[in-house]
Amino acid sequence: MTALGVAAPERLADLKRRLPTGARLHFSVLALVLVVMAFLPLVVPESALPVAIRTLIFAIMAVGWNLMSGYGGMFSFGHAAFFGVGAYTNAYLLTAFGVSPWIGMIVGAGLSAGVGVLIAYLCLKYKLAGSYFALATFAFAQMFLLVTLNMEFLNKSEGINIPLLPEESWSMLQFDQGSLYYYWIPLVLLGVAVAVSISFVYSRPGQFAQAIRDDPTAAESLGIKVMKYRLIPVALSCAVTAVAGAFYTQYYLFIGPDQAFGLHVSTDAIIPAVIGGIGTIWGPLIGAAVIGPLSAVVAGFLRDPPPFLEFLYGTSGLDIAIYAILLILIVVFLPKGIYGTIRERRRK
């Protein structure tokens, strides 16, 4: 059956009692999706593996962003800051002290959550909302970029290379190039991120956070501690995004200031969530599945264009132009995203 089916009977009954129906359904779908996706590399050609891995990284980032901006209602335009903190923490601990990336990942997630909570606390304390919140988070991400460029111990603009090991190692999270573990590990990480999302959304703090998002004044008058329940999704969001950053470093064996803190990193976290559906469990995954392979598909298409599009041969930029048009059309005409719109139609 599903993931719940493997639990011992008494545990299962216990779980069923505690979990609301909606959450149980989401967990079942998640288990099914993970199982199907686990077999994906056996079907698709090997050359598609890097694209699939990139897509998984996008998906983890978007799931993270969605926690803070979708469910928490605080529009972050600087998630690069949290991705970068995760990536650099891992890279620095590994190269300077030989710390295992698994530990680096957890330390990075914790550090990133701390940084995120601090930034969000300051923004909320000074009552920044909407565009101003977005601009402030953006400014922080840019400041992190500039600080990294000046930090001797982070190798300034040159970035940090992860030393290549002579043989595969689970503890150091390094495998042969093209190894399927590089696909399955982020898949499991994504599964954990989505599970965190589902648990949060159906938990008490999650319900409080959504109530605050929809009407802070009403929520406060009901006795909900607004600041506390706003910072919880921020912390979770930053931690999830940092994990994506740490894995990114391990997979590409390199992290530089631009790959960590560049503006495009922030948009990479936002756009899949927006296209799939902000504030939904499955939106970020669907959005990532649309956006992730787009570049590769367009590049393949341009290598052998049909006659009437011959003039596009050899040009670059078409993939991002298409992605931009898609973004504009979805924001203007389907503000709830692909998944959000489908869900709404089905409910009617």
Binding site: S69, G73, F75, F77, G130, S131, A134, T267, I270, V274, L312, T315, S316, G317, L318, I320, A321, Y323, A324, I325, L327, I328, V331, V332, P335
Partner: peptide
């Protein structure tokens, strides 16, 4: 003008972000 009812201002921001990517990459092409 289709987005002026959006109070959070995040949709106009996203559209201009898309516009920025579209313009730069069209120029690149």
């Amino acid at each position: 003008n289709r987005l002026i009812t959006d109070v959070g201002h995040s949709r106009p921001l996203l559209v201009t972000l898309g516009l920025s990517l579209l313009i730069s990459n069209t120029l690149l092409m």
